Simulated scan of single mutants.
Amino acid sequence: MTLTVFFSAPAVWEEYRDLLPGLLAEAGIDARVVTEASDPAVVDYIIYAPSAPLQDFTPFTRCKAVLSLWAGVERIVGNQTLTQPLCRMVDNGLTEGMVEWVVGHALRHHLGMDRHIVNPGHVWDATCPPLARERKVAMLGMGALGTACARALAALNFNVVGWSRTEKTTPGIQAFHGEAGLEAALRGADIVVTLLPKTPETENILNAARLSWLKPGAFILNPGRGPLIDDAALLAALDSGQIGHATLDVFRIEPLPQDHPFWSHPRVTVTPHIAADTRATGAAKVLVENIRRSEAGEPLLHLVDRARGY
C-alpha cells in the first residue's frame, strides 16, 4: 500500500520538494508526499512545523505519527487535538550548528574580543584573559544539544558543569540536578549557557536571585528559549554590572520588537534565532528513518514525553 505523507509546512517545502521523495524511495518506502490534505483520513504521517497553519489534528484518524521539523515542541505539545505520537527533530546538522554558535560566543566573551574588534578610541588594552580552565561554565540543560556543547567547551579546557532537572551523568562533566543542585551549578559561574526546554518549571529559571549567584561580570548565552530568562531581572543585572554581557538568540516575542530595550542596550547582543536551524539535508534523513521505523514496528526516534513537555 502506498503511504500518504502530508508535508504541512509550506514555508520550507521548496527545500524538501525533491529531497524527501528521493530519500523515501531509496529507503524502499512506497509513499507519496502531498502538500494539501484534501482527505485527512488517508494521511499516514504528518511532517509538521509549529508555525504551520495546521492546528486541528482531529480529522487525521489514520495518522501514525506527527514528525516535527523543530527541536522545540512547546507550541504543539499542549494541543488537545493531537493524539498521535509526536517526534521532535534531532539531527547532526542542528547539533553542530548549536555547538558552533555556543563555542564561538563563549570564546568571544572569554577572550574579550569585542574590545579589540570594536575599538573606536584606538585604546591599547593589553589585558590578558585567564585561561579557559580558570573559567567556570554552567550548562543549564544536558539534553542532546546541551551535552554536545558541554563536551565541546570541556575539550577547550573550560571548567564545565552541567545542570538538569533530573539526574544525568556525562563523563568528564560535573553534574548537578534538581533545585538543590541549581545553586551549586550557578554559584560563581563566569559563563552560563541556557539550553533547556520551555516548561512551567523552567520559565524564568534565571531570575534576579539566581543571577546574583553568578560571578560579578558573568556572561549569559541563551540559544535555548526566550522565557528561560526574566527579561526585567536581566536588564537590571546588566545595568548594575552583575552581568557583563548577554548574547541572546531567542526571545519571548519573535522577531524581537523594534522598541525592545535589548536592541539598544550596550551589553546585549541580539542574534535572530539562528543558533541551530533545521537543515533539510539532515532533517529529511531523520524523517525518513522514523517513517521506516514506524512501518517496521520499531520504536520511534525522539518521541516526545507529553507529561514532561519535551
Rank of each mutant, 00 (worst) to 15 (best):
L206K: 10
F158G: 01
H177M: 01
E254P: 03
L211M: 14
K215W: 05
L196F: 05
H245V: 14
L228Y: 04
T170Q: 13
V161G: 07
F251A: 04
T170E: 11
D190M: 02
D231Q: 14
A180Y: 00
P255L: 09
G226V: 06
R187W: 10
G188E: 14
G188V: 13
G141M: 07
L248Q: 01
G217I: 11
A185M: 02
G241N: 10
I191G: 04
N204M: 11
V160E: 01
L248A: 09
R151V: 13
L234G: 02
I220K: 04
R187V: 11
G162T: 03
D239Q: 12
I173H: 03
S164I: 05
L156Q: 00
A237C: 13
L214E: 03
V192H: 02
L182E: 00
A184K: 12
G217D: 11
G143T: 07
G178P: 00
T247F: 02
P197E: 08
I229K: 09
G224N: 12
P216F: 00
A237Y: 08
N159F: 06
G224Q: 08
G241P: 06
T202M: 07
L235I: 09
A208I: 11
A209E: 15
A232N: 13
A185F: 00
G162M: 07
I229V: 15
W163D: 00
G162H: 06
S164A: 15
G181N: 03
N159P: 07
L153M: 07
S240F: 06
K215S: 13
L145M: 14
G244T: 05
A154R: 02
G226M: 11
R252Y: 04
P171E: 15
A232R: 13
P227H: 06
K168H: 05
N159E: 08
I173L: 06
L238D: 07
Q174D: 14
L238T: 08
A233Y: 08
M142R: 02
P227I: 05
P200L: 11
G217L: 10
L235P: 03
K198H: 15
D190P: 04
E201Y: 07
I253F: 01
L206T: 04
A155L: 08
L221R: 09
L214K: 09
N222D: 10
A232W: 09
A175I: 12
A189G: 10
F251K: 09
I229W: 06
Q242N: 10
A144F: 06
L145V: 12
F158S: 03
M142H: 10
G162P: 01
G217F: 01
A236N: 13
D231L: 11
G188H: 14
G162S: 08
A209D: 15
N207K: 09
P223A: 15
E183G: 13
L156F: 00
I220Y: 04
K168R: 15
G143H: 03
M142G: 02
P216N: 14
N159M: 11
A218T: 14
K168A: 09
G226K: 04
G146H: 02
F251R: 02
G172I: 04
A189K: 01
A189D: 06
S240W: 06
S164N: 13
L145I: 11
D190I: 09
I205P: 00
G188Q: 14
F251M: 10
A154Q: 04
R187C: 15
L186E: 01
A208R: 15
P255N: 10
G188F: 14
G244C: 12
T247L: 08
A175E: 08
R210V: 02
L248Y: 11
G143R: 03
L248M: 14
T194F: 02
